[in-house]
């Protein structure tokens, strides 16, 4: 293509065109600066400005300004990305997608919950400053997802507020075919990316574990250790009700300091023995009463 341009002698024409475009952009900026000095100044330090140079004016994103100037300003006469914009979120995002629609990360934008719920690009990204391409900090997401913020403040949590795990490590805020806009086909496939030791395949599987990590864990935060939705033995007994007879049913009189205390109940509770709840490779020694050292019962 470049060779073709050179051969056809279009290079000087294009050069003049870009020059004029640049001058036009600069002129447009000066025009906007008369009223919006702060915004223009901030834009000049942005990644957009550094990437575009002088090739794009304010009108590239904000649309034609003639009506806006003629009306003496007003949000109805300009495409605005501010919180009080007169344009819908869809209209705002459409401006961004003019250039960014081809991005791979945006392939599922139309399917995503953010688009459906009227979240625009500008709701999360700063177009006039900062690093637009930077992973969104947790604060960006938590400004809206207040319930998740509260969960992250619980005693047991992934290191999101510590900045070591990003919301975008698990979720694609630009849309995904899965529930929760996950970056995997299902929950387990996502968790295994970091927790490869839980992948198996195991000789003895624990079927709820294989199907959905969320059967026992809540990913954003819990008052119980290990991000558990409930603590053992209650958690286990949601399915294994009556296990070990009366011994594994907790009450205050089975606490550590009480005479009727049971190992199945206090401390690690069920996990005092059944430590391989994610699966086991140990054999089943039926001769040894089966369960006491068996992989089948997930104790070895």
């Amino acid at each position: 293509m470049i060779n073709s341009i050179v051969r056809k002698g279009l290079l000087p024409v294009l050069a003049v065109g870009f020059l004029l475009l640049g001058q036009s952009a600069v002129a447009a900026e000066m025009k906007c600066k008369e009223c919006h000095e702060g915004q223009v100044t901030s834009f000049q330090g942005s990644h957009h400005a550094k990437s575009w140079g002088d090739s794009h004016s304010c009108e590239a994103c904000h649309g034609a300004t003639d009506a806006h100037i003629k009306a003496g300003g007003g949000k109805e006469t300009i495409i605005s990305f501010a919180k009080k914009s007169a344009q819908s979120a869809e209209a705002q995002s459409k401006q961004c997608l003019t250039c960014h629609a081809t991005m791979k990360a945006l392939q599922f934008w139309t399917m995503g919950k953010h688009k459906q719920n009227g979240v625009s690009c500008a709701s999360c990204h700063q177009t006039h400053g900062g690093k637009m391409a930077e992973k969104p900090k947790a604060e960006t997401c938590l400004a809206c997802h207040k319930d998740i913020k509260s969960q992250l403040n619980k005693s047991s949590h992934h290191p999101v507020i510590e900045g070591k795990v990003s919301c975008a490590d698990c979720h694609n805020p630009h849309g995904s075919p899965t529930h929760g806009m996950l970056k995997a086909d299902n929950v387990n496939q996502l968790c295994y990316k970091c927790h490869a030791d839980k992948r198996g395949p195991f000789l003895w599987e624990h079927s709820p574990v294989e199907e959905n990590c969320l059967a026992c864990h809540t990913p954003h935060g819990s008052q119980h250790a290990k991000l558990l939705t409930a603590r053992a033995p209650q958690l286990c007994e949601n399915c294994h009700s009556g296990a070990h007879g009366a011994g594994a049913n907790p009450d205050g009189n089975q606490a550590f300091g009480k005479p009727t205390r049971f190992k199945q109940v206090f401390g690690r509770a069920c996990l005092n023995c059944h430590n391989h709840i994610h699966g086991s490779m140990a054999p089943h020694d039926a001769q040894n009463n089966g369960e006491y050292t068996s992989g089948k019962y997930l104790v070895r």
């Binding site: 070990h244 049971f262 190992k263 023995c273 430590n275 006491y292 050292t293 104790v299 070895r300």
Partner: peptide
Amino acid sequence: IGVNGGIASTQG
């Protein structure tokens, strides 16, 4: 991790 110790389930 917790490991069962003896053949009785009360040990670990």
